[in-house]
């Protein structure tokens, strides 16, 4: 089967896991996603021509339409649909809990795919892209940049992240506030094993700052619907605490608790005007990317 014939397969995380180069993963995901998008009757893509506007000082000369200049002797900037001249900040959680995975792809790896794809997609739309990799500390920080060379560094930053340590949302959000004052998009990729109230507390300043926040909550299928056959001692990957659970609890009560937790997060996000997207790591990435585009388009 040719790849072009089934672009959805290219977005399958298990297939992507076979690719070692994260840039290649991102390119593959985005290109496949765009191919699928063109076939969609609902969504257009920003690469389609939107309008011309006069060149103003500060605009990138690369976007001057030289053909128009030759005919009219005036400089115009060619603008495309979806182009907002905005920037995207990706916050990737690399805490130990993100290392959990039962489908062959851990939540972190899935998050890396997603972050890289978002970065690639944003770059393709000429948005400046930055990233903060965090756990209980800010592990890496890349300020937003629209340069192609910076994208390579950003992808490398995302690629080398490993799951370890605990989770602390306060530090990455504080760091974000310290360095980013311009309005833009903020995509937080995490499993959000935290108190919704605490999350609300951390995101609220960003919302007040005018940032548009989307929360990608990555969860493994085994977290959403665990299946246990016998009593099992579950060890918390972050704290090391062991809890022995019965199949009855895990198979019936625990999914309900997860659902309530997700709803709590969603409600909290909604209260701040942020978006919340639950991502099942067994599903292809296109749904997440599609969610991002809808989110972006809505914020324009």
């Amino acid at each position: 089967m040719r790849q072009e014939g089934n672009p959805a397969r290219l977005l399958d995380p298990q297939v992507l896991a076979g690719l070692t180069n994260l840039e290649l993963v991102a390119r593959t995901v985005v290109e496949g996603f765009i191919v699928g998008l063109h076939r969609s009757p609902i969504f257009g893509f920003s690469q389609e021509f939107a309008e011309y506007r006069p060149y103003a000082e500060g605009d990138d000369p690369r976007f001057i339409d030289w053909n128009v200049y030759a005919r009219t002797d005036r400089t115009y900037i060619k603008r495309f649909q979806g182009e907002t001249n905005s920037h995207l900040m990706i916050l990737l959680d690399t805490s130990a809990s993100m290392g959990f995975g039962t489908t062959g792809v851990s939540k972190l790896r899935y998050g890396q795919f997603l972050a890289a794809s978002l970065a690639f997609l944003a770059a393709r739309q000429h948005d400046a892209v930055g990233a903060i990799v965090f756990a209980d500390e800010v592990l890496d920080y890349r300020p937003p940049s629209g340069r192609h060379g910076k994208l390579q560094g950003l992808l490398h930053c995302i690629d080398r992240a490993t799951a370890a340590r605990g989770t602390n949302l306060s530090k990455p959000f504080s760091r974000f506030q310290e360095h980013i004052s311009r309005r833009g998009l903020v995509a937080v990729i995490s499993d959000f094993y935290c108190d919704p109230a605490e999350m609300l507390e951390r995101v609220r300043p960003l919302a007040f700052q005018g940032q548009d926040v989307i929360l990608f909550q990555l969860l493994d299928p085994a977290e959403l619907q665990p299946t246990l056959a016998y009593p099992t001692l579950l060890e918390d990957m972050e704290t090391g605490d062991a809890v022995e659970v019965s199949p009855r609890f895990m198979n019936s009560e625990y999914p309900e608790r997860v659902r309530l937790h997700i709803n709590g997060l969603r409600d909290a996000a909604k209260g701040l005007g942020a978006d919340h997207k639950l991502v099942n790591t067994s599903e292809p990435l296109d749904q997440a990317l599609r969610e991002y585009l809808i989110f972006r388009q809505r914020r324009r």
Binding site: S97, Y193, D236, V245, Y254, H261
Partner: peptide, 14 residues
């Protein structure tokens, strides 16, 4: 004995 992402939502009584 198995590793699990978080014990946050596990039953306290457990």
């Amino acid at each position: 004995r198995e590793a699990f992402s978080s014990s946050m939502l596990l039953e306290a009584s457990e």
